[in-house]
Amino acid sequence: MAANENVLIMDHVSYKYSPGTAYEVTALDDVSLTIKEGEFIGIIGHTGSGKSTLVQHLNGLMKATEGHVYFNGQDIYDKDYNMKNLRTQVGMVFQYPEHQLFETTVFEDVKFGPKNQGLSEEDQIKRAYEALELVKLPEEFFLASPFELSGGQKRRAAIAGVIAMKPSVLILDEPTAGLDPKGRDDVLSLISEMHEKRGDTVILVSHSMEDVANYVDRIIVMDTGKPVYDGTPSQVFANYKELEQMGLAAPAVTYVMNDLKDAGLDVATTATTVFEARDEILRMLNK
C-alpha cells in the first residue's frame, strides 16, 4: 500500500442514541473525516463530545444511523462485509483494561485475540510473546493473574491483547485515564515508540491537550458531536481562546508564548512542546 493512502473514511456519519424517545441524544452530527495510513492522530474533546462514539464507528462496534464508513475503500456496512476481520484490522483498546481482562494468566489473555483470528497454537504463543515484549511488560508478570497487576501494568496487558492481532490501525480510548503522571508518560511514550517501530496508523482519544500535544501529528477537536478543528497541533492551538470556551485548554506553553508575544517580544506562538518553545525563545534572544 502506498503511503498516505486513505485507510478510513467517514462520510456524513450521524449517530443518535435511543431515537424517537425522551432519551434521544445526538452523539455524532454529520461527521466527515479521512484518516491516512501511518498518521498519528489525537482526538480531543470533553466528556460527552462524541469522541468515543466516533472511534467506535471506525471498527463497526457502533452502526451509524446515517452515513457510511469505508475501510481500505470498502463500505463496512455492505451486507457481506467481514466485520470480524475489520475488528482485527482496526484494533481498539478501551478505556478500562478491567473490561477485557478475564483469563487466568496475562499470557492466556493476550492470546485471546489471535485465538479468535483462528491462528495455530504456535502462532498464538508467538504473537502473545511479541506483543508483551512490545508493551514492555516485565516477564515475571506473564504468568500472573491479570487481576493482580497494577493500573499501569493492566493497561499494558490490555494494549498487548489488542496489538497481538497485528492491526493496521490502532485506536486507544483514553489510555491514560486513572494513571498517575509517571504511568501516563510511560504509556504515552510506549504508544509513540510502537508507532515509530511499526509504522501503523494510531488514533489516540483523550480529553487532555497536554497528553497528545507532545506526540501526535494531527489533532481533531470534537465538540457536541462535530469535529470543530482538524489540523497540526500548532494550527489547532492557535485557537486556544475558542478551545477554552469548549472547556478544553491548550498546552501551557501555548499560553506562555502568547503572553510573551503580548508583552512585545518577537516570538512565534506555534510551539506546542516545551522543547519547541525553548528553541523559539533562544532564537529570539540570539537575534
Binding site: L61, R87, F94, Q100, F112, G113, M165
Partner: peptide, 8 residues
C-alpha cells in the same frame, strides 16, 4: 464491545 474488538 471490548471483547468483540478482540474478535469475540
Amino acid at each position: 464491545k471490548a471483547q468483540m474488538a478482540r474478535g469475540a
